[in-house]
Simulated assay, not measured.
Amino acid sequence: MTQKQLMISRMTISELNLAVDWAATEGWNPGYYDAESFFQTDPQGFFMGYLNDEPIGSISAVAYDSSFGFIGLYIVKPSFRGQGWGLKLWQAAIEYLGTRNIGLDGVIAQQENYQKSGFKLAHRHIRYQGLGFGVVPDDLIPLSTVPWEEILAYDSQHFPVPRPVFLKHWIQQPEIIAFGVKHQGKLSGYGVLRVCRQGYKIGPLFADDVGFAELLLQGLMAKVPDATVFLDVPDTNLEGINLAEKYRMKPVFETARMYTLTPPTLPLNRVFGVTTLELG
């Protein structure tokens, strides 16, 4: 009997949409328009595994620059699990990212497996779920009125490396809601809300302090009254956790943020909501 061979190829945008559909089936609740932003960031960084021309597994390995990459969308269809196909996809992703510091947000059950591959726990992200309500505070401004260079500079303070390609596509998604807040003429926080398979997700939610974060959270939740809203908060940001709970949000899910090298030095006390568990 001939041994089956897994054929691994780089995804097209349509294949990436299929992988995002698989993520929805897994309960990860991706955004409706995530695939385009993901793909444009690094079109070479998405891999699909095929058996006899059937797509059976996916992984993303996005290289933001020569020093930092991020792994996500690591999925093998249930009927093909436990046969080693996932490991082959994993190896392709790791090989592509090479010597970069690699980050991922892994489900807790897989944390030990990632440690065996050299990943070390940095912190956890806790997903909170609530309902939109309230009114938009007067202090907020549409993010579209903030100069692009100012948005990018602010975002770069809260992410391991500048991510201009990703960010430009992310904040220009269809149906996006995005606010900024300024203090003494400078951007002091911004937040983005996008439509997902179930409800809406807020991410990122970056702010200089909890007061600005609260204004942004109020504004974003007010735009989707009575709709389900999700927010992924670093467990080290106790003010962020308290803020989510203040707005009657409940923890529903948890992931482990891990890196292969030293965790980037980030102001996690100003990260009140991570951008996306798939790309960091």
Rank of each mutant, 00 (worst) to 15 (best):
Q40D: 09
G31H: 09
S66R: 10
Y96K: 04
L73M: 15
D21K: 09
S60G: 10
Y32I: 02
G72Q: 03
S14Y: 05
A93D: 10
W85I: 02
V20D: 12
D34L: 07
P55T: 04
D34R: 02
G72I: 04
S79P: 00
D42M: 03
N29P: 13
R81A: 10
W22F: 12
F38G: 09
N52V: 02
A63M: 00
F68A: 04
S37H: 13
I75Y: 05
Y64L: 03
W85F: 15
A93G: 13
S58I: 03
G98H: 11
G72V: 03
G27I: 11
W28F: 14
E36G: 01
L87W: 11
G86I: 04
P43Q: 09
K77N: 01
Y32P: 00
F68I: 05
N52L: 06
F38S: 08
L89W: 11
E15L: 05
A63Y: 00
D53N: 15
V62L: 11
P30T: 07
G84K: 06
S60H: 05
L51H: 13
D65V: 05
I56V: 15
Y74W: 15
E15T: 04
W22T: 08
Y96E: 05
N29K: 11
P55Q: 03
Q91G: 07
A24Q: 13
N52Q: 14
Y96M: 01
G98M: 07
G49C: 07
F46Y: 12
A24N: 15
A23L: 09
D65K: 04
R81N: 09
N17W: 12
L16T: 04
A19I: 05
E26N: 02
A19H: 07
A35W: 04
S67H: 15
E95H: 14
F68Y: 15
W85A: 03
V62S: 10
Y74T: 10
V62K: 07
L97R: 06
A23D: 11
Q44W: 01
Y33C: 00
L87S: 12
E95C: 07
L18Q: 14
I59S: 11
Q91R: 14
I56D: 08
N52W: 02
K88F: 08
W22E: 08
F39Y: 15
G98C: 09
P30V: 05
Y64N: 04
A63I: 02
N29F: 14
W85L: 06
S79R: 07
G82C: 07
F46R: 00
A93W: 06
W22H: 10
G69I: 07
G45P: 06
I71Q: 04
R81T: 11
M48V: 12
K77R: 09
P30H: 09
L87Y: 09
F47M: 05
K77C: 00
K88P: 02
R81Q: 15
K88Q: 15
P78Q: 09
Y32A: 00
I75A: 06
F46P: 00
L87F: 10
Q40R: 13
F38V: 08
L18P: 00
P30A: 10
E26S: 02
Y33N: 09
Q91M: 12
F38K: 08
A19Q: 05
G57T: 01
E54Y: 13
Y50H: 11
G69M: 08
R81P: 07
E54K: 14
Y50E: 08
F47P: 04
K77L: 12
V76M: 03
G31D: 08
S37W: 14
A92N: 13
G27T: 12
E15F: 04
W90N: 01
I71E: 00
E54V: 14
